[in-house]
Amino acid sequence: MARNFGFAPIKGRVIDFDRNDKRVFEYVLEREPSFALCIGCGGCAATCSAANFTEFSLRKLNILIRRGENDEVRKIVDRCMLCGKCTLVCPRGVNTRNVVFLTREAFEEFDNYAI
């Protein structure tokens, strides 16, 4: 079945903000208000061991959550080892570790209600 006839529908790369589901974002923000303070500097990702060995960046994860790009969030959120190094670095005092934790929790929560 893996034949490509050259006209298979390709999922666009565009972030379709109006269609995206922002419930994960809302779930995290409500429980961890410091999440609103991220300025996308990348300090967290620079120090992160997971980011140094895999395609993972907490900075990116933060933004993906905000935009409701949940498929991608789901793909990478498990790569974090919850070591908490990033929290020590963040210049805006985002409780980064908790953001990851709550994101996972949000998926469990919403999956139970079968989105």
């Binding site: 565009v14 972030i15 379709d16 900075r59 790009e69």
Partner: peptide, 11 residues
């Protein structure tokens, strides 16, 4: 959305 390297569209 340059921090994601993806185009974004919104109303």
């Amino acid at each position: 959305d340059t921090l994601l390297g993806k185009p974004i569209r919104m109303e």
